[in-house]
Amino acid sequence: MATPALRFKRRGLSPQQRRDLRSGLLFAAPAILGLLIFVAYPVLASIYFSFTSYSILQPPFWTGWENYQTLLFDDPLFYTTLYNTFYIAIFTIPLSVIVAMGLAMLLNVKVRGQSIYRTIFYLPTIVPFVASSVLWLWIFNPQYGILNTLLWYIGIQGPGWISDPSWAKPSLIIMNLWGVGSWMVIYLAGLQDTPQELYEAAELDGATAWQKTIYLTLPFMSPYILFSVILMLIGIFQYFTQVFVMTNGGPADATRVYAMYLYQNAFTYFKMGYASAMAWLMFVMVVLLTFVIFRTSARRVYYGGQ
């Protein structure tokens, strides 16, 4: 009897704790296995591949920092795709926040029929990307598309949109704005969570709608905005389907985005090592940017009750 007691003592676990540990691990086993097989191993492997030349048919061989060096100092297309990705991010993210917040605030007004409006605004986000890309390709058609038709009605000769290098990125941004529904719903949830007493008090003090928005709504919504901005950032670095379906990177590289170039290297040119290095640079950039956003927003984000 002395031995088990000793062991318990040494491991510091009571029978209940042991039971908990066992069932905890058992319940989490699939997820833990999943993490090991589908995340941990791939992450380690891709670090390794990023230092090799690997074309699937031959085993990888070590090339050291060559992939990274080539990317950073010797591949203009890498910077082109980075520029395109940042361009799209810099316009899409703030505009999405504004549009989504505007829609959420409208939906938060107490009038009838809100569930219908909410459904309509949300609808674009559930349409498969491939389907919406094909649809927008047709909308952007310079000769027969709806967009230039509408512009024509109001007396404007529309541009070439997605087939014009200087308009292709703005076109993608417009298409992105059409899909802000999920952020809108998140903001709406946040708005409905804000304390009504404060608004009533502000109204008694004669605050205007604008003042209420600036001094009450935005501070209360700031955690939601921060959350959405970070997720949008991660999403835009992975932005792929729309471009792949609509333009395949053209015209004149105007829409060749980072994720697309990565895919191309991996599965068109079979440069698996090079593509892995791109993936890791992307990860580093996402982490750095997330960190910067957290840092710069620290003072402006208001977490209720703190």
């Binding site: 097989i37 992975q238 996402v286």
Partner: peptide, 19 residues
Amino acid sequence: LVAVMIVPNQVTIIPQFLI
């Protein structure tokens, strides 16, 4: 688990493909 959420798809897709 939370940390894994910010690992982009692209990092894991090649090794997963090979697995």
